[in-house]
Simulated assay, not measured.
Amino acid sequence: MNELKGAGVALVTPFDADGAIDFEALGNLIEYQITEGMDYLVSLGTTGETATLTSEERKHVWKYTADKVAGRVPLVAGIGGNNTAEIVKQIKEFDVAGYCAILSVSPYYNKPTQEGIYQHYKAIAQASSLPVILYNVPGRTGSNIAAATTVRLAREFNNIVAIKEASGNFAQMSEIMRDKPEDFLLISGDDPATLPMMALGAVGIISVVGNAFPAKVAELARLCAEGRYAEARTIHAQLLYITDLCFVEGNPCGVKYILQQKGFGKDCVRLPLVPVGEQTQQKIDNELRKI
């Protein structure tokens, strides 16, 4: 799965002032990502506010994105949730044209055991005609995919090819790197962790801040892949504070404000999220001037 190496971006879903999907802004954002050197795109991950979209809206976004990308870069679809049967149904009905893999978040809110997580992903792997990327983000889901569960899934299902790791637990990541099959990929799911994770053996990042700074995130991943960590540290340090500001009032509220400043749609989000407040806007503006 060389298509999943390097810098990927979890695309935002732009909305207009009435809350409708702004497909023109989405198209411009896709062009920006490709032109600025992103290696692959993720459509409707968490950053895409997927939980607030209807099933018909999701289908339209996936279709529009695949048509707009037109095979120029690899494309991943986010299909995940806490109702295993419903996710299996969505995967079976998904139009795979233009997509190379599915990113599926670990079940949230239910707090399943490790066996429950294993059985959930087993059902997904058996239903999917595309390779599957596990997504571990305990800060959002309320539960953690243990290293042993990740490795078990990687060894037992050939189409489970990678994990997007956003646990921040480097001991756990080290266990995955030690025990995983050789071709199973560890991917950073947290922008500030990209450099140290790639030093550990991760192959890249699925980024949030890359929506606003695709060239910088792509260059950071390339430098790390080439072992040029001294140069990578400069970009890493440059993006640290702006990344914090992107999340301080919820994701993707901060990065949508930056995108508005750059001319890529409005900073509109759907409830229960709200746009960032004036103080955060001022901090972002100050940091943008520095960058």
Rank of each mutant, 00 (worst) to 15 (best):
A127G: 09
S143V: 13
N28D: 14
K63N: 14
T280W: 00
A193R: 00
V161T: 12
G277H: 11
E231C: 10
E231A: 14
Y135F: 04
I133N: 04
I79G: 08
C224T: 11
S128E: 12
L195M: 12
N136W: 01
A212K: 01
S207L: 03
R233E: 15
A85C: 07
Y64T: 13
I133K: 04
Q90G: 06
P192N: 00
T54D: 09
I79C: 09
F23S: 09
S143K: 01
E182D: 13
T234C: 09
S167R: 00
N158S: 15
M177K: 00
P192E: 05
K290C: 12
A146S: 12
F264I: 10
Q260V: 10
G80F: 03
E57I: 07
S129R: 13
A146K: 08
E156G: 02
E287M: 04
V42S: 04
L44R: 08
Q238L: 13
N82Q: 09
N28P: 02
S188D: 09
P252L: 08
E86I: 11
V255K: 01
T54A: 07
Q261E: 15
T65K: 05
I30F: 06
G71Y: 05
E57M: 07
M197V: 07
G37Q: 11
M38I: 15
L195N: 04
V132Q: 09
A10M: 07
K68T: 15
P131F: 09
C100M: 14
G78H: 05
N286H: 06
F15A: 08
V88K: 04
D95E: 14
A85G: 10
R72S: 12
M173G: 00
T150N: 04
I176D: 06
E36C: 08
D244L: 00
P275H: 08
S174C: 06
K290T: 15
T149E: 01
L41D: 11
S55V: 15
C100G: 13
Q282W: 01
R140I: 03
Y121V: 14
G265N: 06
A51I: 14
R72W: 10
Y40T: 12
N251M: 04
D67Q: 13
V42E: 12
G210Q: 03
G263V: 06
E287P: 02
A125V: 11
Q33W: 02
K262W: 06
V69N: 09
I124L: 15
H120T: 14
G80Q: 03
L223W: 04
N83G: 05
Q238V: 10
I242D: 09
P74F: 05
I21S: 04
T65A: 12
S188Q: 03
D22M: 01
F94K: 07
C268N: 11
V96K: 14
R228C: 15
G204D: 07
Q172F: 00
I291C: 04
V69D: 10
I91S: 02
G116I: 15
V12I: 15
E93T: 08
G277Q: 12
I206W: 00
L220Y: 00
A202P: 01
I30M: 07
I87E: 09
G265P: 02
Y229T: 14
A232P: 07
P192T: 05
Q261C: 13
E49M: 08
